[in-house]
Design a binder for these strands. Sequence first.
DNA 1: GTTGACCCTAGACTATACTACAGGGTGTAG
DNA 2: CTACACCCTGTAGTATAGTCTAGGGTCAAC
Lengths: 136, 136
Amino acid sequence: MADISLTTGRLAALAGINIETVRFYERSGLISKPKRTASNYRQYPQSDVARLRFIKRAQELGFSLKEIAELLSLRAVPSRSRARVKRLSEKKLEIIDQKISDLRRMRKSLASISDACDGRGSVADCPIINALEESK
Amino acid sequence: MADISLTTGRLAALAGINIETVRFYERSGLISKPKRTASNYRQYPQSDVARLRFIKRAQELGFSLKEIAELLSLRAVPSRSRARVKRLSEKKLEIIDQKISDLRRMRKSLASISDACDGRGSVADCPIINALEESK
DNA sequence: GTTGACCCTAGACTATACTACAGGGTGTAG
DNA sequence: CTACACCCTGTAGTATAGTCTAGGGTCAAC
């Protein structure tokens, strides 16, 4: 079967986002302008579902649309710009590593709060703040 | 030496944020209303520096101010509300675990892009998107 | 051949999270 | 005793990321 294309509404539904958001992302350059039918309907490739899901999840991880656009640009590029891609991806790697370690610290104190609430344990004053204060 | 209190400007500087943001957080209930001097100047305890840093970093991890307020509420509470705290902290734990695993996936593909750009390797089409699309 | 579900554009509106400004008071160094 | 850096309140403005509405066209089913 031909890998049939999607209308805007169908794409939005599959990605779990608002149809207006799809058009907004197109205006913002996060997804490329799709082909149109004779009657001017957009025709999206299936692969845009994954792209939109990526955008959504990256946002939940604290990346702005601008940063996400950068992340998305980090793929098949002319080999002459490889050095640039390497620099950028390494910068993002550092940011990601920092986020992971912050989340782990936060996780640890949250788990101890949760444990303390299990029974008779007493929660020291505000461990959740202690979680991040001395990091970085 | 007495653990001297901080003016709004001093607190903002130590936390690395704008002075207006400190007042905004007070209005939003993220930090509690501090004592005032006779001349109506705010007097913040040193501990608010850590609190503000926590807020800032939690934001970078994708939490909204509302969620951060919830995280901050998770500490020593009357034992009658323990069950509530436990439920909330476990919900947050799940979110944090999901974030960590998403970041790990993202990290993995970013690392492979970075490696590929090291030399002659070719970057497969869009590993960065592949990183998150099938998760959750 | 019309009804209902969908699509289009352009522009207005919203929520969140700040950030700046006006107009006025405070505190201390010289 | 005044200059300058800082504080106060209240209100307005900005950036980001959507979300909605008006006014109109399309398409498949009945």
